[in-house]
């Protein structure tokens, strides 16, 4: 049991400022729910502060956060077995403006992927992490990441084609 938190207040504030928006978006994308994402986001930071080794540098801390957040999302879905109902909460309201169309399309499409596929695509293309970094977060081999990522991308493209969303993608 640690006698103090993994980070000083100042370092934590800096890390939080740098990471919380992207991590929250990631968790919304993974879970399809703003409330759940907020809950997991807080838990990720609490675990980082209470359990992370104190020797980690800032980039490693960010990766640690993503690892914890991914595991928490995994645990949540495993425990509750709610992945099948993901889409209902993700894309319920009819879209109003362009941003909401984007949001709604994204969540609907992500909801048809598995959690692992969503995670892979997000970490690779939104967070722009390397295959090696993704492998570390998901506890996979680098080659597996490459293969699974390609498969996830093809699956997403198929979903977008089927739902007619892909027409405006190259804007």
């Amino acid at each position: 049991m640690t006698e103090r938190l993994a980070l000083s207040e100042e370092s934590f504030f800096e890390l939080h400022a740098r990471s919380h928006r992207s991590l929250r978006r990631y968790l919304i994308g993974m879970t399809g729910s703003v409330e759940l994402a907020e809950e997991l986001l807080q838990e990720s930071y609490l675990r980082l502060l209470t359990r992370a080794p104190g020797s980690l540098a800032q980039p490693q801390l960010v990766r640690y956060l993503y690892t914890v957040a991914t595991r928490l999302a995994n645990d949540h879905f495993r425990r509750r077995k709610v992945e099948a109902r993901w889409q209902a909460s993700a894309a319920g309201d009819p879209a109003r403006d362009e941003a909401e169309v984007e949001r709604s399309d994204l969540l609907r499409a992500l909801g048809r992927l598995t959690l692992r596929q969503r995670t892979l695509l997000w970490l690779a293309y939104v967070e722009e992490l390397s295959h090696r970094e993704i492998a570390g977060i998901l506890d996979l081999g680098e080659r597996s990441v490459r293969v699974l990522l390609a498969r996830s991308r093809r699956r997403l493209e198929k979903i977008l084609r089927e739902s007619g969303v892909d027409r405006g993608r190259d804007r």
């Binding site: 938190l5 207040e9 934590f12 504030f13 939080h16 400022a17 919380h20 928006r21 929250r24 978006r25 919304i28 994308g29 703003v34 907020e38 986001l41 807080q42 930071y45 609490l46 502060l49 209470t50 941003a99 909401e100 984007e102 949001r103 399309d105 994204l106 969540l107 695509l121 997000w122 690779a124 293309y125 939104v126 991308r153 997403l156 493209e157 977008l160 892909d166 993608r169 190259d170």
Partner: peptide, 30 residues
């Protein structure tokens, strides 16, 4: 195509700061 589409969607996902716990409250909870 996939990366651009995902990034645009990700930007639209940001719900703003109003509901997020502040760093100081998180530190205190921890």
């Amino acid at each position: 195509r996939t990366a651009r589409w995902l990034r645009r969607g990700a930007e639209a996902l940001d719900p703003g700061d109003e509901i997020s716990a502040t760093a100081s409250s998180l530190y205190w909870k921890a």
